[in-house]
Each structure stands twice: as structure tokens, then as C-alpha cells.
């Protein structure tokens, strides 16, 4: 049953997404793209870029987007609920203990292992996103380069590494450049 599958997949994504914002990316790729095929890699990248320009965390955006695609609005609601079950329960328990003045050292220890491991996994997601966007999924073959994406990539690295522009600004600039490139293709 599709609703149960949606719930279960996003339940796991919510449960394992330790370490903030992009931590959900490798999980979304692994479950939603690779395992269930609910999104293509291109759709996932589009979703990630678009969700930088809309309010809300990537994981919830993905739950709504994928839920709507696979099973309409009820699917979106179920996937979103699935995504928050574990975080909300865990946070309530931790909050309850904290407001009583207690601390849990086992979670601190777990986090010391989790944080660097999640960085490695975000690295994996980054590699597949670069491969899909710039190399058109042809695993690092230069003859399949997507020059528009490459241009966006270079601009983003240059300005984002120097903290000159925010992600929202960069993505908007990317959209404008894309439209200009298409105008050149059409009219020249």
C-alpha cells in the first residue's frame, strides 16, 4: 500500500537525518531515488534547488513534493507526518529530561560519531548531484558535459566560497542565466 510505503520511507529519512539541513540529502537519494524510484536524480536536484527558494526544511519539502507526486495531497500529508514522528518524539523526550535538569551523555557520544559520518554521506550525495547535473549521468565523461550547469557550478563555487552571495541569490542568478542562454540559442 502506497501510503504505508510513503510513511515508512519518510519515517526512516526523519529518523536518520542527524546533523542539520543537508543531512537529509543522502537519505532522500538512497530511499526516494535509488530504492523506490519516486524521483529521478534530475527531479531531486530540481527539488533541492527550488526548496532553497521556498520556506521550510529540505526534508519536509521533499516529503510534500514526493507525497504529492506519488499519492496526491493525502500522500503529502502522510509523508510529512512520517518525516516528523521520530524527531518530534525524540525532541520531546530530550526536552522533558532537560527541563528537569538532566542530560543524556549517550546521545553526545553517538553524535560524535554521527557528525563526521554524515559529512562523508553528504559528500556522496554531492558527488552524485554533480555527476547528474554537469555530466548528464554519464559518470565523468567529458563529451557529455552540460555547459550551462558547469557555468552555474563555477559561479556558485566562486561566489559562495567567498561568502559574497547567498544561496537564494545564487539560484536566482542561475535561473536568469539559464533564460539568457536559452534566448541566445533561440534568437541567435
Amino acid at each position: 500500500m502506497i501510503y504505508l510505503e510513503l510513511f515508512w520511507v519518510f519515517f526512516q529519512i526523519g529518523a536518520f537525518a542527524f546533523g542539520g539541513g543537508y543531512a537529509a540529502l543522502p537519505l532522500i537519494e538512497s530511499y526516494v531515488v535509488d530504492q523506490y524510484g519516486w524521483l529521478s536524480m534530475t527531479e531531486m536536484i530540481d527539488l533541492v534547488s527550488l526548496s532553497q527558494m521556498t520556506p521550510g526544511p529540505i526534508a519536509i519539502n521533499a516529503a510534500t513534493f514526493v507525497g504529492t507526486k506519488v499519492a496526491g495531497i493525502p500522500g503529502a500529508i502522510i509523508a510529512t507526518i512520517g518525516n516528523v514522528v521520530v524527531p518530534v518524539s525524540l525532541v520531546s523526550i530530550l526536552g522533558y529530561l532537560l527541563f528537569q535538569g538532566r542530560k543524556i551523555s549517550i546521545l553526545d557520544k553517538a553524535l560524535k560519531g554521527l557528525k563526521p559520518a554524515v559529512v562523508g554521506l553528504i559528500g556522496v550525495a554531492t558527488v552524485s548531484m554533480i555527476n547528474s547535473s554537469i555530466f548528464n549521468d554519464q559518470i565523468w565523461q567529458l563529451e557529455n558535459l552540460n555547459y550551462s550547469a558547469l557555468l552555474g557550478f563555477v559561479i556558485a563555487i566562486f561566489f559562495y566560497a567567498r561568502k559574497k552571495l547567498s544561496v537564494i541569490q545564487l539560484i536566482s542568478i542561475g535561473a536568469i542565466i539559464g533564460i539568457i542562454i536559452e534566448a541566445i540559442r533561440v534568437y541567435i
Partner: peptide, 11 residues
């Protein structure tokens, strides 16, 4: 397409 390159760069 350009946005996909941008987000890869940001990542």
C-alpha cells in the same frame, strides 16, 4: 539546468 549546477557548487 544552470540552477542544478549552482546547487551542486553550493553543496
Amino acid at each position: 539546468s544552470v540552477m542544478s549546477g549552482v546547487i551542486s557548487g553550493v553543496l
